[in-house]
Amino acid sequence: MTTPGINDVVRIQEGGLEHPAVIALVRQHLASAADHSPPESVHALGFERLRLPGLRFYTAWQGDELAAMGAVKRIAADHAELKSMRTADAFQRRGIAATMLRHLLQVAADMGCTRVSLETGSMDAFAPARALYARFGFVACAPFGDYREDPYSVCMTRML
């Protein structure tokens, strides 16, 4: 495994849920969510839900190494939700999450959405994610869609 750097070229592609590295990262994402939240507060998507119509799943690669994943789900004609954003451990704190987030926001804009929202955890383990979203202009909001008030969740939104 090479040491990834922020200046390395990142290739983002749609799909790829069958790739072994992607399967491993989705499983890690689900396990981490379960480690930090009670079952009723885990909103991470498993493989079946990541394949649902209306959801666009992306992976980011540096060379042959999976760096990150993320998805965009349309929840209304003008409103999208970010789902399953996760950076592989070897690529954390190297700008990959910001690259993926920029891409997902562009996908939402290309879909004709004017608003993008997300749900993330309220615990300390999710602080880096909340900070990233805040740097991109996301602000805390009331629960949207099927989300309900939950001390383990933080909902955030921004206009495009």
Rank of each mutant, 00 (worst) to 15 (best):
residue 83 K to I: 00
residue 94 R to M: 10
residue 87 T to A: 04
residue 136 F to P: 01
residue 109 A to H: 14
residue 125 A to P: 03
residue 137 G to F: 12
residue 77 A to N: 15
residue 129 A to G: 09
residue 12 I to L: 09
residue 143 P to A: 07
residue 154 V to C: 02
residue 7 N to W: 14
residue 156 M to N: 02
residue 89 D to T: 07
residue 129 A to L: 04
residue 141 C to M: 10
residue 6 I to T: 15
residue 61 W to Y: 12
residue 16 G to P: 01
residue 49 R to W: 07
residue 107 V to F: 02
residue 120 T to R: 09
residue 134 A to G: 05
residue 56 R to G: 07
residue 21 A to R: 03
residue 97 A to V: 08
residue 144 F to A: 03
residue 20 P to H: 00
residue 44 A to Q: 01
residue 40 E to G: 05
residue 58 Y to P: 00
residue 89 D to H: 10
residue 130 R to A: 04
residue 103 H to A: 02
residue 154 V to Q: 03
residue 57 F to E: 01
residue 54 G to C: 09
residue 79 H to M: 09
residue 100 M to Q: 07
residue 96 I to W: 04
residue 14 E to V: 10
residue 26 V to N: 00
residue 53 P to D: 15
residue 151 P to S: 05
residue 24 A to R: 12
residue 59 T to P: 03
residue 44 A to S: 04
residue 84 S to A: 14
residue 146 D to L: 15
residue 49 R to Y: 13
residue 155 C to R: 03
residue 61 W to V: 04
residue 150 D to R: 07
residue 55 L to Q: 01
residue 133 Y to F: 15
residue 138 F to Q: 01
residue 140 A to N: 08
residue 23 I to C: 02
residue 129 A to C: 09
residue 48 E to C: 07
residue 112 G to T: 07
residue 64 D to Q: 14
residue 124 D to K: 13
residue 106 Q to F: 08
residue 112 G to W: 06
residue 100 M to C: 03
residue 150 D to P: 10
residue 141 C to V: 03
residue 149 E to N: 10
residue 92 Q to F: 04
residue 149 E to Q: 12
residue 147 Y to G: 05
residue 84 S to K: 08
residue 72 V to K: 12
residue 55 L to W: 02
residue 46 G to I: 01
residue 40 E to R: 15
residue 55 L to D: 00
residue 27 R to D: 14
residue 99 T to W: 01
residue 115 R to E: 14
residue 42 V to N: 05
residue 61 W to R: 13
residue 156 M to Y: 08
residue 150 D to S: 12
residue 148 R to H: 15
residue 80 A to I: 03
residue 83 K to L: 10
residue 117 S to W: 03
residue 87 T to H: 02
residue 136 F to A: 08
residue 44 A to T: 08
residue 130 R to F: 14
residue 72 V to Q: 10
residue 66 L to E: 00
residue 95 G to R: 03
residue 157 T to G: 09
residue 38 P to K: 11
residue 116 V to C: 04
residue 10 V to E: 00
residue 149 E to A: 14
residue 118 L to E: 00
residue 67 A to D: 11
residue 59 T to E: 02
residue 19 H to W: 08
residue 56 R to P: 06
residue 119 E to A: 06
residue 58 Y to I: 11
residue 6 I to P: 06
residue 1 M to N: 10
residue 138 F to S: 07
residue 9 V to N: 10
residue 93 R to F: 04
residue 32 S to M: 05
residue 83 K to Q: 09
residue 72 V to P: 05
residue 32 S to H: 13
residue 139 V to N: 05
residue 151 P to M: 02
residue 2 T to K: 08
residue 133 Y to E: 08
residue 116 V to T: 08
residue 131 A to G: 00
residue 44 A to V: 11
residue 58 Y to A: 09
residue 145 G to C: 06
residue 66 L to P: 00
residue 78 D to G: 07
residue 54 G to D: 01
residue 68 A to W: 11
residue 3 T to D: 13
residue 37 S to E: 09
residue 160 L to K: 01
residue 115 R to V: 13
residue 3 T to R: 15
residue 50 L to I: 07
residue 77 A to F: 06
residue 13 Q to F: 02
residue 110 D to R: 15
residue 122 S to D: 05
residue 119 E to S: 01
residue 64 D to H: 12
residue 139 V to C: 15
residue 131 A to R: 15
